[in-house]
């Protein structure tokens, strides 16, 4: 089987990351200041607006790069949150086993059955709309999968001889989890990180599209998609561009994640 990383995906993702990372320093425009004399420009090589401008005269290329930045930021932060909750939850439940395990995993089952969208709507009603809430909402839901996977892995690691050896040597449970279980889960954790990121990107886009995510003037791929959809007939490019970036981002992450899974997680 071919286990080398898909090169095109890696390069494409690197280019997108670079654009998202460097946009505050390389762009002559910002993403929020309206320019009333330059509204609704079409894409053109001359004039300084490569992809044109929106109805407020903001440069679309810059907004696209900022959107990628915000979407990736949300994705990364939410994934890290979900990873840390998921790993600690799964390892604790899996290693301690017995009644603790049963209790912790039943809680996961209960959370699984909470419908996500109404949950976020309730959150925004209670706490108001903001980006941090988005991190927390997405992170708080997507850790469930990771917790289940990590728990399963932990249960099999727990009976491996090197863990029994540490137990016999008098190493405390918390230290065993930290020094033996977690390091040996890293392969799988990294794989699931690359697979969680695209899911979160999509979720963020979905919520922002509904207006529950990033708030104007802040932008994200979901916001741009909503803007684009509003002008779909007049200026289809405004929908196509963020959609393309979104698809590329998700596709590349998934490709890389799949390949990493083949290699490290059997």
């Amino acid at each position: 089987m071919n286990h080398t990383l898909p090169r095109i995906s890696v390069w494409m993702l690197a280019a997108l990351l670079l654009a998202a990372l460097l946009v505050p320093w390389i762009s002559p425009y910002d993403y929020f200041t309206p320019a009333w004399d330059q509204t609704n420009l079409s894409p053109a090589l001359a004039g300084g607006h490569l992809l044109g401008t929106d109805q407020l005269g903001r440069d679309l290329l810059v907004r696209l790069m900022w959107s990628t930045r915000i979407s990736l930021l949300v994705a990364l932060a939410a994934s890290l949150i979900s990873l840390s909750i998921g790993v600690s939850w799964g390892v604790t439940a899996g290693y301690l086993g017995g009644r603790t395990d049963a209790l912790m995993m039943r809680l996961v089952d209960v959370l699984y059955s909470v419908p996500f969208t109404p949950f976020v709507i309730v959150l925004t009603v209670v706490f108001g709309r903001n980006l941090w809430l988005l991190f927390v909402a997405i992170g708080a839901v997507s850790w469930l999968d990771i917790a289940r996977i990590v728990r399963g892995q932990t249960r099999s690691l727990r009976h491996r001889e090197f863990v029994v050896a540490a137990d016999i040597a008098g190493v405390s449970p918390s230290r065993i989890m930290l020094r033996h279980i977690v390091p040996n889960l890293m392969g799988i954790v990294i794989v699931y990180l690359t697979l969680t990121i695209p899911t979160v990107i999509l979720t963020e886009a979905f919520l922002s599209y509904l207006g529950l995510g990033a708030q104007a003037p802040l932008t994200s791929l979901g916001v741009m998609l909503a803007d684009g959809a509003a002008q779909m007939r007049a200026r289809p490019l405004m929908l196509i561009m963020p959609a393309t970036v979104l698809i590329l981002l998700v596709y590349c992450c998934n490709r890389i994640g799949d390949r990493l899974r083949d290699r490290y997680a059997g």
């Binding site: 090197f162 190493v171 040996n184």
Partner: peptide, 26 residues
Amino acid sequence: PSELRERRRSMQMVFQDPLASLDPTM
């Protein structure tokens, strides 16, 4: 449990599969 951990120290063990008994990340 903690007394048990102390007590176990006077009794140690060597396993059948030496590689499996060593943490691969260490």
